[in-house]
Design a protein around this nucleic acid. Structure first.
Lengths: 107, 107
DNA sequence: TTTATTAATCGTATTTTTACGATGAATCAA
DNA sequence: TTGATTCATCGTAAAAATACGATTAATAAA
């Protein structure tokens, strides 16, 4: 059966899942919203806002960065985090395509 | 500091993360796409398409159902799964609001 | 230089996720 | 009734995610 293994290993599905997974934790969505409001900020700024330890925030930032949704630039002792426009565009494209594909049939 | 605990426990962020988490695995996205194409199908149909055991598929279906994205109706021996229009609408709303919020600042 | 600050990483513990085979309950067909 | 089918659930194992404190490396300030 050729269909087997087809859907799950499809790169576009993999990428969609990767992006969705990055959004799949309240702390990471909160971080993205903070970055959207303040344009850029340091790890410490986010740690002050969220009720999480610095190392935990750093881990979430790493996850968002490796999913391509944010960028981090070292500025001296600090690291400046920003939304990554390419990543956000991809997020928008991928998720809107998915939801309209689902929407078409069921709504 | 009042801002602490505010963002993460915000119900709308929690819900967004819950929906995103449900989409955060290739198998579950694949299942949603299958349901979008075939309108409805049984657990066995999906198990035939995906390279996963029946019990694993059943678990993914349960996850999608508890996130409100699909419905499952027992029809005799089988269970008929469909996209849940309300859930899909919510998915579309929540994710498009999020991505446009991010998009506004960064793109 | 010495000290302080910032953030990444390490080590670790706990929980959750993912996957499978086996079992069981419910229904249908013979 | 008996046997077959379907799918949820159980038990379990392995991997990944989540969180924290402690440490380290890099830079800035004293």
């Amino acid at each position: 059966m050729e269909v087997k293994e087809f859907l799950i290993t499809d790169p576009s599905i993999q990428r969609s899942a990767e992006i969705a997974k990055a959004l799949g934790h309240p702390a990471r969505i909160a971080i993205l919203k903070i970055l959207a409001q303040r344009t850029n900020c340091f790890c410490g700024d986010i740690t002050e806002i969220l009720p999480l330890a610095q190392s935990t925030v750093s881990q979430h930032l790493k996850a968002l960065k490796s999913a391509g949704l944010i960028s981090g630039t070292v500025e001296g002792v600090k690291t400046c985090y920003c939304l990554n426009p390419d990543g956000v565009r991809e997020l928008q494209t991928v998720l809107s395509e998915l939801s309209s594909e689902l929407f078409k049939t069921c709504c």
